[in-house]
């Protein structure tokens, strides 16, 4: 680990001022410390934001939910409002990492977490994300865990977050505060596809930090759920995952929110699947037909070709268990 200076921000102003001077924010630290130890991350100064007042979970005026950036994954997953309104978020959280890591890691940090790509994490390997221009060892290397959607010639690393998949499905937004003030971005615009600049992962400006994520109000009743497919039963990143939320009224699907994980360089929204569902009546056939589009546009690599089919089946399965067959 490279040496660094450390300051704990007493308030938001102090944090932003340190951030503007190039300080690196640290909250739960589970990704950052891990990557600092691998020397993938080499910040010269850390700004500890853990005591900032960003720990509230509140219902917004319009009936959505705002989760403070420093709410831990454990707290968010156990929060009665989150559980009542958006089971898909709780399921995604509780299927993530381990109990210990969920006690440490925060909602803001979870969205910011960096890929598990083995070549990214190995400083002796070529990686455009870590070291722009050095190449991508994963393209022709071992890429079973890599993305099939949203990839580029520069990078095929999977976004590792489960939570972000649930948030993306629900059209959530990210609230940011920076030296130039506050702004809000849709999550899907906040997280960037690699393109030719895989080193740039978020639409963050210098010194900006996440203050909250907001999940919009959705028509009720809303059934939702998260399915994570992986080799072992716990404590593993997803091979594929599906976040699904359905609003069914009068036997017809009026609203459908679907996103996929484990397959994209960013949490992968599935608008085609959603369009197939809206206006239809739940049935096994509908789930299968809609899920057939889950892997549209996929670019499989040497070792992850199975993910396209697995993704379709994952989406179908979650649609079926969430939507049932009326």
């Amino acid at each position: 680990m490279h040496p660094f200076t450390y300051t704990k921000a007493a308030d938001m102003r102090e944090a932003l001022s340190a951030g503007r001077r190039g300080g690196r924010y640290i909250a739960g630290g589970t990704t950052l410390v891990d990557l600092m130890r691998e020397t993938v991350e080499r910040p010269g100064s850390l700004v500890d934001i853990s005591t900032l007042p960003l720990r509230e979970v509140t219902v917004t005026e319009r009936g959505g939910l705002r989760i403070g950036a420093l709410v831990s994954m454990a707290e968010a997953g156990a929060h009665p409002k989150v559980r009542a309104l958006y089971p898909v978020i709780c399921e995604a959280l509780e299927l993530s990492a381990s109990a210990q890591l969920r006690n440490m890691a925060t909602i803001g940090g979870n969205i910011m977490q960096r890929t598990r790509c083995t070549y990214f994490r190995d400083v002796t390997a070529a990686c455009n994300k870590r070291d722009p221009g050095s190449g991508c060892a994963a393209l022709q290397g071992y890429n079973r865990n890599h993305a099939i959607l949203g990839t580029s010639d520069s990078c095929v690393a999977t976004h590792p977050s489960d939570l972000a998949v649930a948030l993306a499905a629900l059209d959530s937004t990210v609230r940011l505060l920076g030296p130039d003030g506050e702004r809000t971005l849709p999550l899907v615009d906040f997280l960037l596809k690699p393109g030719s600049t895989p080193n740039r992962e978020q639409a963050l400006r210098k010194g900006e930090l996440i203050t909250a994520v907001e999940i919009p109000a959705l028509p009720r009743p809303l059934k939702s759920g998260y399915l994570k497919v992986r080799d072992r039963q716990s404590y593993e990143f997803a091979l594929t995952s599906a976040a699904v939320a359905l609003h069914v009224r009068g036997g017809v699907i009026r609203e459908a929110k679907v996103a996929a994980g484990g397959v994209g360089t960013v949490p992968w929204k599935l608008p085609t699947v959603e369009r197939h569902l809206i206006g239809e009546r739940p049935s096994h056939r509908l789930w299968a037909e809609a899920a057939e589009h889950a892997a549209d546009g996929a670019h499989p690599l040497t070792h992850n070709g199975f993910k396209a089919e697995l993704l379709k089946r994952t989406v179908e399965r979650r649609l079926r268990t969430v939507g049932g067959t009326a």
């Binding site: 640290i26 589970t30 410390v33 210990q100 006690n103």
Partner: peptide
């Protein structure tokens, strides 16, 4: 009171 991974916890943060 909460279980955490001490390997990923920077001691300097534990004032």
């Amino acid at each position: 009171g909460r279980r955490v991974n001490s390997c990923l916890t920077l001691a300097v943060r534990l004032e």
